[in-house]
Design a protein around this nucleic acid. Sequence first.
DNA 1: CCAATCTGTCACCGATCGGTGATTAGCAAG
DNA 2: CTTGCTAATCACCGATCGGTGACAGATTGG
Lengths: 218, 218
Amino acid sequence: MAVANAAVKIPFEAPAPEKRVRNRAATEQVILDAAKRLLAEEGFQNFGINAVARGAGCDKQLIYRYYGGLNGLVEAIGTDLGGWVKDRIPDDTGGMFLLTYGDLMERLSMLFLDALRADPLMRRIVAWEVSESSEQVRRLSEARSKALAGWIERMRGSLVPPKGVDAQAVNAMIFAAIQHIVLASAVSDQCAGLPLKNGKDWEKAAIALKRIVRGVYG
Amino acid sequence: MAVANAAVKIPFEAPAPEKRVRNRAATEQVILDAAKRLLAEEGFQNFGINAVARGAGCDKQLIYRYYGGLNGLVEAIGTDLGGWVKDRIPDDTGGMFLLTYGDLMERLSMLFLDALRADPLMRRIVAWEVSESSEQVRRLSEARSKALAGWIERMRGSLVPPKGVDAQAVNAMIFAAIQHIVLASAVSDQCAGLPLKNGKDWEKAAIALKRIVRGVYG
DNA sequence: CCAATCTGTCACCGATCGGTGATTAGCAAG
DNA sequence: CTTGCTAATCACCGATCGGTGACAGATTGG
């Protein structure tokens, strides 16, 4: 929030004061942004009060005051996360006609794969989910899965899975595969021996994924 | 020094002396075991020199002396890991006749799923792999994937995947799904809305997995 | 104008972290 | 017994952690 300052009436150049504006709402936003940025770029390992305060350029006391500590801040991130799906993943069928449940799942898989690949924050949260079992991460996890479930429900429309297939279980496997492969690629450019560096690698992965979906749902 | 303990020569019961034997090899083993136990039970979050020393009941200095620090210790764990596969997963076909590549992959999936579910240390390592990108974890990851690849190769025998299927990519997806679903279950008893608590839940998951394998490989 | 309130900063606390000498305690050869 | 070697411990370092109390400056209501 650069801004404002002139606000005050300093007649001549203030050297480098970077005057902090007194604005609670703005500061809250700065803190929240810093937290999300930090989590996305550094991961949850070094995610703490001090680090966030440092990143936000303010005193950690403000985090306690405005968010009630790190837990509250994480909760605020979770709330923000509610809008993730609709920001990142199209809510329509992209002009396609999804005639079958297989069509739907193929498209959902691709959308989810791309969205997750493109969003470092969401990746970190998923990694966090499978690494720690704290209350903090439970909240985040809940917010994420809720948003995702809503999105899937909306996209599903009136399509129903074929009989004889436990769609919930199969879909869980598919989404699990996507999540894991994206996580693995983000830290080591490969997964289970499959290289995942350039676009060509990912094209192969996408094809394999579609094949799996089609193998089950036809 | 709390006193001295008249230590020496106390005629009657020494309270809790726990006499430490002077034995380097044994101490090294104690440290290594403590490290593995700690990693398995507490996770990589609180995995550090102090914690390991505390868990081993010795001074951290010994870890520096014997293993050259935490990195060396992790490396030692990685070396140990080489024997994981053969300890945990049968190396034969269990008397089954694997006639097709689909038979093979179905069996491998089930074996891997069960083995991973049963081994908390391995789960932690997998979680570590997708959460951090340090040199430490790279070593562990390498040891693990190497052991796994060797096992698969041995099991594969002369079976070859059907033409027209990118088996490497598809198998990576399958193993990714297994790993992620096991990780997720370990921290939240569910994955993508699919409950994973009791044996019945896991039976469903296993069926879904087999269905996927069969959908691709017939 | 003063006083209360709000925003932001600073200094400090105890605990723990990784890391490094210096020191003690047991064992064996001379 | 003395001398050395080595296993093992102790004591301490600076840095950072999460957390808190006190304080300074701006804003606002009376």
